[in-house]
Design a protein around this nucleic acid. Structure first.
Lengths: 193, 193
DNA sequence: ACTGATTGACTGACGCGTCGGTTTACGGTC
DNA sequence: GACCGTAAACCGACGCGTCAGTCAATCAGT
Protein backbone atom coordinates (compact mmCIF):
# COMPACT_ATOMS: atom_id res chain seq x y z
CA UNK A 1 0.00 0.00 0.00
CA UNK A 2 2.93 2.33 0.56
CA UNK A 3 3.59 2.62 -3.17
CA UNK A 4 7.29 1.97 -3.01
CA UNK A 5 9.31 3.72 -5.63
CA UNK A 6 7.39 6.97 -5.34
CA UNK A 7 9.37 9.21 -3.02
CA UNK A 8 7.69 10.01 0.25
CA UNK A 9 7.68 13.74 -0.33
CA UNK A 10 5.70 13.27 -3.53
CA UNK A 11 3.34 10.81 -1.86
CA UNK A 12 2.59 13.35 0.84
CA UNK A 13 1.83 16.02 -1.76
CA UNK A 14 -0.54 13.75 -3.67
CA UNK A 15 -2.29 12.68 -0.49
CA UNK A 16 -2.59 16.29 0.61
CA UNK A 17 -4.20 17.26 -2.71
CA UNK A 18 -6.86 14.60 -2.25
CA UNK A 19 -7.58 15.46 1.36
CA UNK A 20 -7.55 19.24 0.92
CA UNK A 21 -9.95 18.92 -2.01
CA UNK A 22 -12.32 16.79 0.01
CA UNK A 23 -12.31 18.53 3.37
CA UNK A 24 -10.96 22.00 2.68
CA UNK A 25 -7.89 23.59 4.20
CA UNK A 26 -9.22 24.19 7.69
CA UNK A 27 -11.06 20.89 7.71
CA UNK A 28 -7.96 18.78 7.13
CA UNK A 29 -5.46 18.07 9.83
CA UNK A 30 -1.84 17.21 9.33
CA UNK A 31 -2.68 13.83 10.82
CA UNK A 32 -5.25 13.31 8.04
CA UNK A 33 -2.63 14.00 5.41
CA UNK A 34 0.03 11.72 6.82
CA UNK A 35 -2.52 8.97 7.39
CA UNK A 36 -3.60 9.22 3.74
CA UNK A 37 0.03 9.19 2.64
CA UNK A 38 0.83 6.21 4.86
CA UNK A 39 3.48 8.27 6.56
CA UNK A 40 4.09 10.04 9.84
CA UNK A 41 3.91 13.47 11.43
CA UNK A 42 7.68 13.61 11.76
CA UNK A 43 8.28 12.89 8.08
CA UNK A 44 5.80 15.61 7.18
CA UNK A 45 7.74 18.23 9.13
CA UNK A 46 10.98 16.90 7.73
CA UNK A 47 9.84 17.77 4.19
CA UNK A 48 7.61 20.79 4.73
CA UNK A 49 7.84 23.81 7.00
CA UNK A 50 4.20 23.50 8.04
CA UNK A 51 0.69 22.93 6.75
CA UNK A 52 0.47 26.38 5.23
CA UNK A 53 3.75 25.93 3.35
CA UNK A 54 2.56 22.70 1.78
CA UNK A 55 -0.75 24.22 0.69
CA UNK A 56 0.92 27.27 -0.81
CA UNK A 57 3.39 25.07 -2.68
CA UNK A 58 0.54 23.05 -4.19
CA UNK A 59 -1.36 26.14 -5.31
CA UNK A 60 1.72 27.88 -6.67
CA UNK A 61 2.74 24.80 -8.65
CA UNK A 62 -0.62 24.43 -10.29
CA UNK A 63 -0.81 28.13 -11.15
CA UNK A 64 2.60 28.02 -12.78
CA UNK A 65 1.88 24.98 -14.90
CA UNK A 66 -1.53 26.36 -15.89
CA UNK A 67 -0.01 29.66 -16.93
CA UNK A 68 2.62 28.03 -19.09
CA UNK A 69 0.09 25.69 -20.69
CA UNK A 70 -2.10 28.65 -21.62
CA UNK A 71 0.77 30.81 -22.82
CA UNK A 72 1.97 27.97 -25.01
CA UNK A 73 -1.44 27.32 -26.52
CA UNK A 74 -2.07 31.00 -27.21
CA UNK A 75 1.27 31.52 -28.90
CA UNK A 76 0.58 28.60 -31.25
CA UNK A 77 -2.81 29.93 -32.39
CA UNK A 78 -3.22 32.85 -34.74
CA UNK A 79 -6.14 35.24 -34.95
CA UNK A 80 -8.14 36.70 -32.04
CA UNK A 81 -10.88 34.09 -32.02
CA UNK A 82 -8.43 31.22 -32.29
CA UNK A 83 -6.28 32.61 -29.50
CA UNK A 84 -9.24 32.99 -27.14
CA UNK A 85 -10.41 29.52 -27.97
CA UNK A 86 -6.92 28.10 -27.49
CA UNK A 87 -6.60 29.79 -24.10
CA UNK A 88 -9.95 28.50 -22.89
CA UNK A 89 -9.28 25.05 -24.25
CA UNK A 90 -5.90 24.86 -22.55
CA UNK A 91 -7.54 25.95 -19.31
CA UNK A 92 -10.38 23.46 -19.66
CA UNK A 93 -7.92 20.68 -20.33
CA UNK A 94 -5.84 21.57 -17.27
CA UNK A 95 -8.84 21.87 -14.96
CA UNK A 96 -10.49 18.83 -16.46
CA UNK A 97 -7.44 16.66 -15.93
CA UNK A 98 -7.37 16.91 -12.15
CA UNK A 99 -10.60 17.64 -10.30
CA UNK A 100 -8.96 17.66 -6.89
CA UNK A 101 -6.38 20.25 -7.86
CA UNK A 102 -9.03 22.35 -9.56
CA UNK A 103 -11.18 22.26 -6.45
CA UNK A 104 -8.29 23.40 -4.30
CA UNK A 105 -7.37 26.16 -6.70
CA UNK A 106 -10.82 27.59 -7.33
CA UNK A 107 -12.78 26.77 -4.20
CA UNK A 108 -10.71 25.78 -1.20
CA UNK A 109 -8.10 28.50 -1.65
CA UNK A 110 -10.73 31.25 -1.42
CA UNK A 111 -11.43 33.17 1.76
CA UNK A 112 -8.69 31.70 3.91
CA UNK A 113 -6.58 33.97 6.09
CA UNK A 114 -5.06 37.21 4.74
CA UNK A 115 -1.75 35.54 3.83
CA UNK A 116 -3.48 33.04 1.56
CA UNK A 117 -5.77 35.70 0.21
CA UNK A 118 -2.81 37.76 -0.95
CA UNK A 119 -1.34 34.78 -2.73
CA UNK A 120 -4.63 34.04 -4.47
CA UNK A 121 -5.04 37.67 -5.44
CA UNK A 122 -1.55 37.69 -6.90
CA UNK A 123 -2.23 34.59 -8.98
CA UNK A 124 -5.53 35.94 -10.29
CA UNK A 125 -3.81 39.20 -11.08
CA UNK A 126 -1.23 37.34 -13.17
CA UNK A 127 -3.95 35.82 -15.33
CA UNK A 128 -5.99 39.01 -15.45
CA UNK A 129 -2.94 40.98 -16.57
CA UNK A 130 -2.34 38.51 -19.37
CA UNK A 131 -5.91 38.87 -20.60
CA UNK A 132 -5.83 42.62 -20.19
CA UNK A 133 -2.74 42.95 -22.34
CA UNK A 134 -4.60 41.31 -25.22
CA UNK A 135 -7.65 43.48 -24.65
CA UNK A 136 -5.57 46.64 -24.60
CA UNK A 137 -4.00 45.70 -27.89
CA UNK A 138 -7.41 44.93 -29.37
CA UNK A 139 -8.70 48.33 -28.24
CA UNK A 140 -5.64 50.10 -29.66
CA UNK A 141 -6.20 48.36 -32.98
CA UNK A 142 -9.90 49.30 -32.89
CA UNK A 143 -10.93 45.66 -32.97
CA UNK A 144 -13.17 46.29 -29.96
CA UNK A 145 -14.63 49.50 -28.56
CA UNK A 146 -12.94 51.42 -25.76
CA UNK A 147 -13.93 49.69 -22.56
CA UNK A 148 -12.52 49.30 -19.08
CA UNK A 149 -10.13 46.51 -20.02
CA UNK A 150 -9.13 45.84 -16.41
CA UNK A 151 -12.71 45.19 -15.34
CA UNK A 152 -13.48 43.19 -18.48
CA UNK A 153 -10.44 40.98 -17.92
CA UNK A 154 -11.82 40.03 -14.52
CA UNK A 155 -15.28 39.47 -15.96
CA UNK A 156 -13.77 37.05 -18.44
CA UNK A 157 -11.76 35.31 -15.73
CA UNK A 158 -14.81 35.06 -13.49
CA UNK A 159 -16.97 33.58 -16.22
CA UNK A 160 -14.54 30.75 -16.80
CA UNK A 161 -13.91 30.28 -13.12
CA UNK A 162 -17.58 29.86 -12.28
CA UNK A 163 -18.22 27.48 -15.15
CA UNK A 164 -15.41 25.24 -13.92
CA UNK A 165 -16.67 25.43 -10.34
CA UNK A 166 -20.17 24.52 -11.46
CA UNK A 167 -18.76 21.58 -13.36
CA UNK A 168 -16.85 20.48 -10.26
CA UNK A 169 -19.97 20.64 -8.14
CA UNK A 170 -22.64 19.35 -10.49
CA UNK A 171 -20.65 17.34 -12.99
CA UNK A 172 -22.26 19.21 -15.86
CA UNK A 173 -21.38 19.13 -18.61
CA UNK A 174 -19.94 15.61 -18.47
CA UNK A 175 -16.76 16.70 -20.21
CA UNK A 176 -15.51 20.12 -19.26
CA UNK A 177 -14.06 20.57 -22.75
CA UNK A 178 -17.61 20.71 -24.12
CA UNK A 179 -18.04 24.25 -22.80
CA UNK A 180 -15.15 25.63 -24.82
CA UNK A 181 -17.03 26.70 -27.99
CA UNK A 182 -19.97 28.33 -26.17
CA UNK A 183 -17.69 30.05 -23.70
CA UNK A 184 -15.28 31.27 -26.35
CA UNK A 185 -18.12 32.72 -28.40
CA UNK A 186 -19.64 34.31 -25.29
CA UNK A 187 -16.38 36.09 -24.56
CA UNK A 188 -15.50 37.10 -28.11
CA UNK A 189 -18.97 38.42 -28.88
CA UNK A 190 -19.25 40.06 -25.51
CA UNK A 191 -16.25 42.22 -26.18
CA UNK A 192 -17.30 43.26 -29.66
CA UNK A 193 -19.15 46.55 -29.71
CA UNK B 1 -19.95 53.01 23.37
CA UNK B 2 -22.63 50.37 23.77
CA UNK B 3 -24.93 52.16 21.33
CA UNK B 4 -27.98 52.08 23.56
CA UNK B 5 -31.26 51.84 21.72
CA UNK B 6 -29.99 49.30 19.21
CA UNK B 7 -31.02 45.88 20.48
CA UNK B 8 -28.16 43.63 21.43
CA UNK B 9 -29.08 40.88 19.00
CA UNK B 10 -28.78 43.33 16.12
CA UNK B 11 -25.54 44.73 17.50
CA UNK B 12 -24.05 41.25 17.59
CA UNK B 13 -25.05 40.66 13.98
CA UNK B 14 -23.49 43.91 12.80
CA UNK B 15 -20.32 43.25 14.76
CA UNK B 16 -20.15 39.72 13.35
CA UNK B 17 -20.45 41.04 9.79
CA UNK B 18 -17.49 43.35 10.32
CA UNK B 19 -15.33 40.73 11.97
CA UNK B 20 -16.19 37.91 9.57
CA UNK B 21 -15.41 40.19 6.62
CA UNK B 22 -12.07 41.13 8.08
CA UNK B 23 -10.78 37.83 9.41
CA UNK B 24 -12.84 35.18 7.62
CA UNK B 25 -15.05 32.57 9.21
CA UNK B 26 -12.37 30.35 10.64
CA UNK B 27 -10.24 33.30 11.64
CA UNK B 28 -12.86 34.86 13.88
CA UNK B 29 -13.63 33.49 17.30
CA UNK B 30 -16.89 33.92 19.10
CA UNK B 31 -14.94 35.93 21.64
CA UNK B 32 -13.88 38.33 18.87
CA UNK B 33 -17.48 38.87 17.90
CA UNK B 34 -18.78 39.54 21.38
CA UNK B 35 -15.84 41.82 22.12
CA UNK B 36 -16.61 43.84 18.98
CA UNK B 37 -20.28 43.98 19.94
CA UNK B 38 -19.45 45.03 23.50
CA UNK B 39 -21.33 41.99 24.72
CA UNK B 40 -20.66 38.60 26.23
CA UNK B 41 -20.38 34.94 25.39
CA UNK B 42 -23.56 34.22 27.32
CA UNK B 43 -25.60 36.73 25.37
CA UNK B 44 -24.28 35.34 22.13
CA UNK B 45 -25.49 31.84 22.91
CA UNK B 46 -28.74 33.25 24.20
CA UNK B 47 -29.53 34.64 20.75
CA UNK B 48 -27.81 32.21 18.41
CA UNK B 49 -27.40 28.44 18.41
CA UNK B 50 -23.68 28.71 17.60
CA UNK B 51 -21.15 30.43 15.37
CA UNK B 52 -22.26 28.48 12.33
CA UNK B 53 -25.91 29.39 12.87
CA UNK B 54 -25.11 33.09 13.02
CA UNK B 55 -23.00 32.96 9.87
CA UNK B 56 -25.64 31.06 7.96
CA UNK B 57 -28.31 33.54 9.07
CA UNK B 58 -26.24 36.47 7.82
CA UNK B 59 -25.63 34.86 4.42
CA UNK B 60 -29.21 33.73 3.99
CA UNK B 61 -30.53 37.18 4.86
CA UNK B 62 -28.35 38.93 2.35
CA UNK B 63 -29.18 36.43 -0.39
CA UNK B 64 -32.89 36.89 0.19
CA UNK B 65 -32.79 40.66 0.10
CA UNK B 66 -30.53 40.62 -2.96
CA UNK B 67 -32.87 38.27 -4.79
CA UNK B 68 -35.91 40.39 -4.09
CA UNK B 69 -34.10 43.59 -5.09
CA UNK B 70 -33.12 42.04 -8.40
CA UNK B 71 -36.50 40.50 -9.06
CA UNK B 72 -38.16 43.83 -8.40
CA UNK B 73 -35.81 45.76 -10.67
CA UNK B 74 -36.16 43.25 -13.50
CA UNK B 75 -39.95 43.24 -13.37
CA UNK B 76 -40.00 47.04 -13.66
CA UNK B 77 -37.84 47.13 -16.78
CA UNK B 78 -39.04 46.13 -20.21
CA UNK B 79 -36.98 44.76 -23.07
CA UNK B 80 -34.12 42.28 -22.86
CA UNK B 81 -31.29 44.82 -22.67
CA UNK B 82 -33.13 46.93 -20.10
CA UNK B 83 -33.87 43.88 -17.95
CA UNK B 84 -30.26 42.73 -17.96
CA UNK B 85 -29.09 46.20 -17.15
CA UNK B 86 -31.65 46.54 -14.36
CA UNK B 87 -30.58 43.22 -12.85
CA UNK B 88 -26.90 44.10 -12.90
CA UNK B 89 -27.58 47.57 -11.58
CA UNK B 90 -29.66 46.24 -8.70
CA UNK B 91 -26.87 43.80 -7.90
CA UNK B 92 -24.19 46.47 -8.09
CA UNK B 93 -26.21 48.72 -5.82
CA UNK B 94 -26.68 45.96 -3.25
CA UNK B 95 -23.03 44.90 -3.28
CA UNK B 96 -21.84 48.48 -3.38
CA UNK B 97 -23.86 49.44 -0.34
CA UNK B 98 -22.15 47.11 2.11
CA UNK B 99 -18.60 46.00 1.39
CA UNK B 100 -18.39 43.83 4.48
CA UNK B 101 -21.52 41.87 3.61
CA UNK B 102 -20.37 41.51 0.02
CA UNK B 103 -17.02 40.17 1.14
CA UNK B 104 -18.71 37.60 3.35
CA UNK B 105 -21.09 36.58 0.62
CA UNK B 106 -18.62 36.28 -2.25
CA UNK B 107 -15.31 35.48 -0.60
CA UNK B 108 -15.53 34.30 2.97
CA UNK B 109 -18.45 31.93 2.39
CA UNK B 110 -16.49 29.97 -0.23
CA UNK B 111 -14.73 26.72 0.53
CA UNK B 112 -15.85 26.29 4.12
CA UNK B 113 -17.01 22.88 5.33
CA UNK B 114 -19.50 20.79 3.34
CA UNK B 115 -22.52 22.16 5.24
CA UNK B 116 -21.66 25.72 4.26
CA UNK B 117 -20.74 24.66 0.77
CA UNK B 118 -24.19 23.18 0.23
CA UNK B 119 -25.83 26.39 1.37
CA UNK B 120 -23.68 28.47 -0.96
CA UNK B 121 -24.35 26.12 -3.84
CA UNK B 122 -28.08 26.38 -3.17
CA UNK B 123 -27.96 30.18 -3.18
CA UNK B 124 -25.93 30.31 -6.40
CA UNK B 125 -28.33 27.83 -7.94
CA UNK B 126 -31.26 30.12 -7.09
CA UNK B 127 -29.68 32.99 -9.02
CA UNK B 128 -28.48 30.77 -11.84
CA UNK B 129 -31.96 29.32 -12.25
CA UNK B 130 -33.42 32.80 -12.48
CA UNK B 131 -30.96 33.76 -15.22
CA UNK B 132 -31.44 30.45 -17.00
CA UNK B 133 -35.19 30.90 -17.16
CA UNK B 134 -34.67 34.14 -19.10
CA UNK B 135 -32.12 32.52 -21.37
CA UNK B 136 -34.40 29.59 -22.11
CA UNK B 137 -37.17 31.98 -23.06
CA UNK B 138 -34.79 33.95 -25.28
CA UNK B 139 -33.69 30.75 -27.01
CA UNK B 140 -37.29 29.64 -27.51
CA UNK B 141 -38.11 33.00 -29.06
CA UNK B 142 -34.99 32.75 -31.28
CA UNK B 143 -33.56 35.93 -29.80
CA UNK B 144 -30.32 34.09 -29.15
CA UNK B 145 -28.90 30.89 -30.68
CA UNK B 146 -29.33 27.51 -29.05
CA UNK B 147 -26.68 27.29 -26.38
CA UNK B 148 -26.19 25.43 -23.15
CA UNK B 149 -28.24 27.85 -21.07
CA UNK B 150 -27.29 26.23 -17.79
CA UNK B 151 -23.59 26.72 -18.38
CA UNK B 152 -24.10 30.22 -19.78
CA UNK B 153 -26.10 31.24 -16.71
CA UNK B 154 -23.13 30.32 -14.52
CA UNK B 155 -20.73 32.15 -16.84
CA UNK B 156 -22.86 35.26 -16.45
CA UNK B 157 -23.01 34.85 -12.68
CA UNK B 158 -19.28 34.29 -12.49
CA UNK B 159 -18.47 37.36 -14.54
CA UNK B 160 -20.43 39.60 -12.19
CA UNK B 161 -19.11 37.82 -9.14
CA UNK B 162 -15.47 38.28 -10.09
CA UNK B 163 -15.91 41.92 -11.00
CA UNK B 164 -17.41 42.61 -7.59
CA UNK B 165 -14.64 40.66 -5.85
CA UNK B 166 -12.00 42.57 -7.77
CA UNK B 167 -13.67 45.80 -6.74
CA UNK B 168 -13.66 44.66 -3.12
CA UNK B 169 -9.98 43.85 -3.24
CA UNK B 170 -8.59 46.64 -5.40
CA UNK B 171 -11.19 49.37 -5.02
CA UNK B 172 -11.46 49.69 -8.77
CA UNK B 173 -13.51 51.16 -10.18
CA UNK B 174 -14.14 53.72 -7.45
CA UNK B 175 -17.88 53.30 -7.72
CA UNK B 176 -19.05 49.78 -8.40
CA UNK B 177 -22.03 51.13 -10.33
CA UNK B 178 -19.64 52.35 -13.03
CA UNK B 179 -19.21 48.79 -14.31
CA UNK B 180 -22.89 48.35 -15.09
CA UNK B 181 -22.93 49.54 -18.73
CA UNK B 182 -19.79 47.66 -19.81
CA UNK B 183 -20.85 44.53 -18.00
CA UNK B 184 -24.39 44.62 -19.34
CA UNK B 185 -23.13 45.03 -22.88
CA UNK B 186 -20.61 42.23 -22.40
CA UNK B 187 -23.35 39.89 -21.33
CA UNK B 188 -25.95 40.90 -23.89
CA UNK B 189 -23.53 40.79 -26.81
CA UNK B 190 -21.95 37.65 -25.54
CA UNK B 191 -25.19 35.77 -25.78
CA UNK B 192 -26.10 37.00 -29.24
CA UNK B 193 -25.04 34.67 -32.02
C1' DA C 1 29.71 4.13 13.90
C1' DC C 2 28.05 7.77 11.47
C1' DT C 3 24.50 10.20 8.93
C1' DG C 4 20.17 11.18 7.06
C1' DA C 5 15.45 9.53 7.10
C1' DT C 6 11.49 8.31 9.72
C1' DT C 7 8.62 7.39 13.69
C1' DG C 8 4.75 8.57 16.95
C1' DA C 9 3.94 9.86 21.74
C1' DC C 10 3.67 14.09 23.71
C1' DT C 11 2.85 19.14 24.73
C1' DG C 12 0.85 23.49 24.80
C1' DA C 13 -2.25 26.69 22.96
C1' DC C 14 -6.48 27.76 21.47
C1' DG C 15 -11.46 28.23 21.02
C1' DC C 16 -16.25 26.41 21.24
C1' DG C 17 -19.91 25.84 24.06
C1' DT C 18 -21.64 25.32 28.99
C1' DC C 19 -23.37 26.71 33.22
C1' DG C 20 -23.95 28.87 37.65
C1' DG C 21 -24.77 33.17 38.65
C1' DT C 22 -26.26 38.40 38.40
C1' DT C 23 -28.93 42.16 36.70
C1' DT C 24 -32.96 44.23 34.58
C1' DA C 25 -37.84 44.64 33.40
C1' DC C 26 -42.32 44.06 34.63
C1' DG C 27 -46.86 42.60 36.45
C1' DG C 28 -49.35 41.91 40.43
C1' DT C 29 -50.52 42.97 45.45
C1' DC C 30 -51.44 45.76 49.44
C1' DG D 1 -45.65 53.90 45.15
C1' DA D 2 -43.02 50.66 47.95
C1' DC D 3 -42.59 45.69 47.85
C1' DC D 4 -42.03 41.33 45.92
C1' DG D 5 -41.73 37.36 42.74
C1' DT D 6 -40.37 35.77 38.58
C1' DA D 7 -38.86 35.42 34.07
C1' DA D 8 -36.11 37.07 30.52
C1' DA D 9 -31.71 39.09 29.35
C1' DC D 10 -27.09 39.03 30.10
C1' DC D 11 -22.41 37.87 32.09
C1' DG D 12 -17.71 35.52 31.94
C1' DA D 13 -14.78 31.84 34.06
C1' DC D 14 -13.82 27.34 33.02
C1' DG D 15 -13.98 22.47 31.06
C1' DC D 16 -12.76 19.82 27.52
C1' DG D 17 -11.66 18.33 22.95
C1' DT D 18 -8.76 19.27 19.11
C1' DC D 19 -4.64 19.88 16.54
C1' DA D 20 -0.19 22.12 14.96
C1' DG D 21 4.19 21.42 15.87
C1' DT D 22 8.35 19.11 18.76
C1' DC D 23 11.76 15.82 19.92
C1' DA D 24 14.02 11.75 21.75
C1' DA D 25 14.36 7.35 19.98
C1' DT D 26 14.95 4.14 16.16
C1' DC D 27 16.06 2.47 11.62
C1' DA D 28 18.63 1.79 7.18
C1' DG D 29 22.18 2.51 4.29
C1' DT D 30 27.24 3.04 3.71
Amino acid sequence: MNSPGIPLRERIIQAAIEVFAERGYNGTTVDDIVAAAGSSKGAFYFYFPNKEGLFLAIVEDFATSLASAIAGAVSQASGAMAKVEAAIEAGARAFGRDRALSKIMLVEAVGLNPAFENKRREIYARFAALIQSYLDRAVAEKDIPAIDTEVMAYAWLGAINEVVVHWLESGRPKELEKVVPDLARFIINGLRG
